[in-house]
């Protein structure tokens, strides 16, 4: 490993100041789980790392409001959310997702901010948070702004963050009875990156789907909402016919790429099948099987 500078500022504002927006080899590091792998494999050689580890403790804290909205600082560890009763109650889909996201050692170290800034399209949390309607707060030299997760991911390892801008927090709105589910589909081993991720979130009244969000990840370049599939569900009665229509629409619209986890035609079939399965899973309590 080639030597580099490491700064450990005591405040978030200082961290923002220490990052040189002109220098792509100067970057933030939070949990370091992704950063260390990039450095070891030579993909990234930093001249300077600004660790967020020692910033104010509020960045490592989170709250769940009485109606079930989550506010989390960027330095909150995934494991903290995983073990929180309040998070589990407000977002059962998160409780279901964490156990398949890497392993307990990584989850205890990896942070919300690092996870969302990394923008590897195979990651499990981005599609789920996107389906839940989350947004982040980005803080840079000229202040803070919010970015919806639907706007955050721009490409492989690419986000809408400006150079010098950091993720400072995450907000997930109260779900108000929406039903959600995530399906991680691997094709080589259980701990592999997914060949496809499908996250869904649905508002239902009686037996009817009022509104649907369907997000695909891993098989596509960035986590992507499937608007045609969502439209196919809007106003439809809960049931296999609607699910299959959504699966077909997603399979038709998804821009799937080939890689070692499967060819594009095969992964398109995975989309077709797993959209249906994710919908069934989300609505299992509603009598869908």
């Amino acid at each position: 490993m080639i030597p580099f500078q490491l700064a450990e500022p005591a405040s978030f504002a200082e961290a923002v100041r220490l990052i040189d927006p002109e220098d792509p080899t100067c970057r933030a590091v939070s949990g370091g789980t992704a950063m260390m792998l990039m450095m070891k494999s030579g993909v990234f050689q930093p001249s300077k790392l600004v660790s967020l580890r020692k910033v104010e403790p509020e960045y490592a804290a989170f709250t769940v409001s009485s109606d079930g909205a989550l506010q989390a600082g960027a330095l909150v560890r995934l494991g903290q959310l995983e073990r929180s009763e309040a998070v589990r109650a407000a977002f059962p889909v998160l409780a279901d997702t964490f156990p398949v996201l890497s392993n307990v050692r990584v989850r205890n170290v990896a942070t919300v901010g690092g996870n969302l800034a990394h923008a590897d399209p195979h990651m499990d949390l981005p599609p789920v948070l996107m389906a839940l309607g989350a947004h982040i707060t980005a803080t840079g030299p000229s202040g803070s702004r919010t970015i919806a997760l639907t706007e955050l991911f721009r490409g492989y390892y690419e986000t809408a963050l400006e150079p010098g801008e950091l993720i400072s927090g995450l907000s997930v709105p109260a779900q108000a009875g929406r039903r959600s589910a995530y399906v991680k589909c691997t094709t080589r081993s259980a701990h592999d990156w997914p060949a496809l991720g499908v996250a869904v979130s649905l508002a239902v009244t009686g037996g009817t789907i009022q509104d649907a969000r369907i997000v695909l990840s891993a098989a596509v370049e960035t986590p992507t909402r499937m608007t045609d599939a969502e439209a196919a569900l809007k106003g439809a009665p809960i049931g296999e016919e609607a699910f299959r229509a959504a699966g077909e629409a997603a399979a038709k619209a998804a821009e799937v790429t080939s890689d070692v986890r499967g060819s594009a035609p095969y992964k398109t079939q995975l989309v077709r099948v797993n959209v249906v399965r994710a919908l069934r899973k989300a609505l299992a309590a509603e009598g869908a099987v």
Binding site: L37, S41, R188, S189, A190, H191, D192, W193, V260
Partner: peptide
């Protein structure tokens, strides 16, 4: 593992998945 998932992917003689992130041995869950 050799039956279900492991394979050295080669492209013009170059192993393109020479790491445990991309070459998958079975985990306890498999």
């Amino acid at each position: 593992g050799f039956t279900m998932s492991e394979k050295m992917e080669l492209d013009a003689g170059q192993v393109t998945n020479a790491s445990l992130a991309d070459y998958k041995i079975p985990s306890i869950l498999d």
